[in-house]
């Protein structure tokens, strides 16, 4: 009989390590393609450095960027999975271990006490957890560390509902133009629409987890995603914001119902290092890592 708590801890440690050191294969392929298609020496130099760096990280199992991010976990707990509330403490333990052994940069700063050195906040909120209760006997964990530079250009706006989808698109264009060279482009963009002022940001972040070029199952939403991808590249931000090469790799949107009086729009932007890794553990402790 496996020690299920230990399996969850070891798996989560592994997910944090993989997320920090190895890009999902389709993200890497897209960056390589972007490099090959970039015209102009400024952009080409930037894209080449990104791709070379990604390969170094993968080969040497080292973090691809020194900003290993603020850690978040997306967790789905099955009704019949043997662990419940303990999962939170186990994930914190894995985070602390990864901070020491991958290593990850200690990024949890308390406003009054300073850097906690463990990536664990002193007030219970970091790492950030998104818990969901689902049917079945499995536990799904996705680790998603996100860098500060690209989080700093995230934006939320409550736009007048009368502006409709056009208003949503305008706001996304404005958010990306404002991000410009600041947050390590080429970017991947997550957009959350509806829900409320908090949920639209949550949805936008979740949208980043969808693999690149997998568009929304609702064709009307997929059409807007594709249109925005094309439009945002016309901004000519370019690799690292120097105007040459790809600006945006992909755009994903999620929609929730909204209050009749509100049209909340959240834009979460990822730098080129779109990092996440997932696994599913069954009730007997068998681990299946998601394709990466």
């Amino acid at each position: 009989m496996k020690d299920i708590a230990q399996v969850v801890e070891d798996t989560s440690f592994e997910l944090l390590k993989v997320a920090a050191t190895k890009l999902p294969s389709e993200v890497k392929e897209t960056l390589v393609k972007g490099k090959n298609e970039t015209k102009g020496s400024l952009g080409k130099a930037q894209m080449s450095a990104i791709v070379e760096n990604v390969e170094l990280a993968e080969t040497n199992i080292k973090p691809m960027c020194q900003d290993t991010g603020l850690v978040a976990f997306f967790v789905k707990i099955g009704d019949k999975f043997p662990l419940r509330s303990e999962v939170k403490e186990i994930l914190k333990k894995a985070t602390e271990r990864a901070t020491k052994n991958v290593p990850l940069r200690p990024n949890a700063v308390d406003m009054f006490e300073g850097n906690t050195k463990t990536n664990i906040g002193l007030r219970g909120y970091v790492p950030w957890f998104y818990f969901d209760l689902v049917e079945g006997d499995k536990l799904e964990i996705i680790a998603m560390p996100k860098g500060g530079g690209s989080s700093n250009v995230g934006k939320m706006k409550m736009i007048p509902p009368g502006k409709g989808i056009k208003g949503v698109k305008e706001f996304v264009v404005e958010a990306l133009a404002a991000a410009g060279p600041l947050a390590c482009p080429p970017y991947t963009v997550g957009v959350g629409v509806g829900g409320g002022e908090d949920m639209c940001m949550n949805l936008a972040k979740k949208a980043l987890l969808r693999p690149l070029y997998h568009y929304h199952e609702d064709e009307r939403i997929a059409a807007i995603e594709k249109e925005l991808l094309q439009t945002l590249n016309q901004l000519e931000i370019g690799a690292m914001g120097l105007g040459e090469g790809p600006s945006v790799l992909d755009v994903h949107m999620e929609f929730a119902a909204r209050h009749p009086a509100s049209l909340p729009v959240g834009v979460v932007i990822s730098c080129w290092a779109l990092r996440h890794a997932g696994a599913t553990i069954d009730k007997d402790g068998n681990v299946e890592y998601h394709p990466h």
Binding site: K169, E170, E174, A177, G180, P181, L235, I237, G238, L242
Partner: peptide, 21 residues
């Protein structure tokens, strides 16, 4: 250079917003 690039991005933004449907 980056300020030049930002000016270009802002110019493109205005054009995109003008033509947006």
């Amino acid at each position: 250079l980056t300020e030049d690039s930002k000016k270009n991005i802002m110019k493109n933004k205005e054009k995109i917003l003008e033509e947006m449907k």
